[in-house]
Design a protein around this nucleic acid. Structure first.
Length: 576
DNA sequence: ACTAGGTATAGTTACAGATGTCAATCTGT
């Protein structure tokens, strides 16, 4: 039963939450948070490192104590310190921290004053009007809690795709190792590259005597088996992810893969096409009467209904079938098309590595250029740069570029868009950069007209190249801003600036439907890692997948261009 | 709890702005 990095990261985050509610030393809390963040971003498995006898203390931010806790988790599967904390502080309290407006102090007050230990308790207390009586709370707090909980409780838990991915990879590896198994593939929304996945649909082909079903339900990471039959089983993993496994005949592999990849509306449209020419389409194949005419491969399924192969990311019944019939399917952008990255941070602000280390990591990720875009001064939590520090970094980058071979650093900034739409640094400074990435980091809940006007005004600044994470959403914690995104997209076209597809697991922002709008408006998009460490470039594939869901081709992604082609495009957005 | 530098202990991305309550807590990467 492998303990994966996200498990350890989650344990450390939970320890940090519980310590914080306990009013512990803030630096101690931060040590756990930093470790969680480090581990979440690592590309090497900690359990592999432990097995290999590596010294975990060499990881930045991991000392003797945390190294010991990691070893304990990897070898025993649990963390005794966390269990001890959970005995003295109800673990469900950490869920309450996710409610907007509730932090450690107020959660502790709710717990002590009202015995509120769970989200359900909180909802009941709010409904009964008991919250307003606690010192520090009032009617507004109570109403806000009630409002967010109603939305919260109705939501089905979904996983950001990049968070689910390592669990998926581990499960697939395990199943592939079962004797008699030929093929294992993950279908469903995971294969379509949706930003979040609800449950996983895994498909396998195997010999008739293979024990794949039994081995699946006894996988070490399984916490509950919901159903188990000869060709289908459903389990819940310890991380609460639901997984369905289906075994199919090799002859029906393509039909099953197509069927279980979906989307449902895409399948319905394909089935209707089949019906029109006398074919029955289901997960077992394509049939004319009793005769199977296709189904071994997905290509054969599409061919039988007169279509070319349609990439999974397009299968949302958003015009892909019409495009396929007309021979106008996009040739989707791929990860290897990326030549650079236009959004990253170094240890000068809230990143973890030096400029030189970031450059080397970008180069190792196959990139030719990397824009360093630190936060600006307004974002004090991220140690944002003021004009003096930014000037100094610009000189550093110039000097470093003199030494670097095969990778070029671009001088940029991720400047805060202030509430009135002005930028957090003066134009005289911004105009000396290669590019200016603008972003909203505060005041996410302005009314739509003001929020939209704010962003439009920012784009109109003399120096404005890319609007970063345009919707501002965080998948598991923050709704997108209230903005007129179509207007922002049209404005980008008129202004001649670009929008970002931010590849961070929690962001994947711009969202797919708006990417499609941007494409139709002729606005170029940049697929950016927003890397805060050398590991951050590993998220780029998820950004690419998001771009593909928005139908983007190579030339519609800004940073597929060579540096020579890119530079004039960036310069055109800047008044010099 | 980590790191550095020293074999103990100090210093640790740090603070403005908003909210909503009446002093303090939460948010932001």
């Amino acid at each position: 039963m492998p303990i994966l990095n996200p498990d350890i990261a989650r344990a450390f985050d939970e320890i940090a939450d519980l310590l914080e509610i306990d009013n512990a030393n803030p630096f101690r809390v931060r040590a756990y948070r930093n470790a969680a963040r480090l581990i979440q971003g690592m590309s090497t498995d900690l359990h592999t490192m432990v097995e290999a006898g590596d010294d975990l203390k060499e990881l930045p931010g991991i000392g003797e104590d945390l190294a010991g806790k990691i070893v304990e988790m990897v070898t025993t599967g649990h963390c005794s310190f966390l269990e001890k904390l959970e005995k003295q502080t109800p673990p469900a309290l950490t869920e309450l921290l996710k409610v907007p407006g509730l932090g450690p102090k107020r959660v502790k007050a709710l717990w002590h004053e009202l015995n509120v230990e769970t989200v359900e308790h909180l909802a009941r207390a709010a409904r009964e009007g008991r919250i307003r009586g606690i010192p520090g709370f009032g009617e507004k707090s109570e109403a806000r809690i009630l409002e967010t909980l109603q939305a919260h409780l109705a939501a089905i838990p979904r996983f950001p795709i990049a968070i689910a991915a390592p669990y998926v990879a581990a499960l697939v590896r395990y199943l592939q190792g079962v004797p008699g198994v030929h093929r294992v593939v993950v279908a469903g929304s995971f294969r379509r590259g949706k930003d979040t996945v609800g449950d996983l649909d895994v498909l396998a082909t195997a010999t008739a005597d293979s024990l794949v079903m039994t081995r699946f339900t006894t996988y070490g990471d399984v916490s509950a088996v919901l159903s188990q039959g000869p060709t289908r089983a459903t389990v819940i993993l310890r991380n609460k992810l639901q997984v369905d496994l289906r075994t199919v005949d090799t002859s029906a592999y393509g039909a099953a893969l197509h069927y279980f990849t979906g989307s449902k509306t895409h399948n319905i449209a394909i089935r209707r096409l089949g019906q029109g020419i006398g074919l029955k389409v289901n997960e077992y194949g394509l049939f004319r009467g009793k005769e199977r005419v296709a189904g071994e491969t997905e290509e054969s399924v599409y061919a039988a209904v007169g279509l070319p192969y349609i990439e999974p990311e397009l299968r949302e019944n958003r015009g892909e079938i019409e495009a396929a019939r007309a021979g106008r399917l996009p040739k989707l952008v791929e990860r290897v098309d990326l030549r650079g990255d236009l959004h990253s941070h170094s240890s000068a602000t809230d990143g973890h590595h030096s400029l030189r280390e970031m450059a080397a990591a970008a180069q190792a990720a196959g990139l030719e250029y990397l824009a360093i875009t630190e936060h600006s001064r307004h974002l004090t939590i991220a140690h944002g740069l003021d004009p003096v520090r930014l000037r100094r970094q610009m000189e550093e980058i110039d000097a470093l570029n003199g030494e670097l071979q095969g990778i070029t650093l671009l001088k940029g900034v991720e400047v805060d868009i202030l509430e009135d739409g002005s930028l957090d640094l003066p134009d005289t400074l911004l105009s000396d950069l290669d590019l200016v990435v603008g972003a909203v980091h505060s005041q996410f809940d302005l009314p739509s007209d003001r929020q939209t006007a704010r962003i439009l005004r920012a784009m109109d600044s003399p120096c404005f190249t890319i609007l970063a994470h345009p919707s501002g959403r965080l998948l598991s914690s923050r709704k997108p801003m209230n903005v007129d995104m179509s207007r922002i997209i049209r404005h980008a076209r008129e202004r001649g600036c670009f929008l970002e597809i931010n590849a961070q697991p929690e962001r994947l922002d711009l969202v797919d439907t708006h990417i499609r709008t941007a494409k139709e408006e002729g606005v170029l998009l940049a697929v950016n890692s927003d890397a805060h460490s050398t590991q951050g470039f590993a998220h780029l594939p998820f950004g690419i997948q998001q771009a593909r869901r928005g139908w983007l081709e190579k030339q519609e992604v800004l940073n597929t261009r060579s540096l020579a082609e890119l530079k004039p495009l960036l310069a055109a957005t800047m008044v010099k």
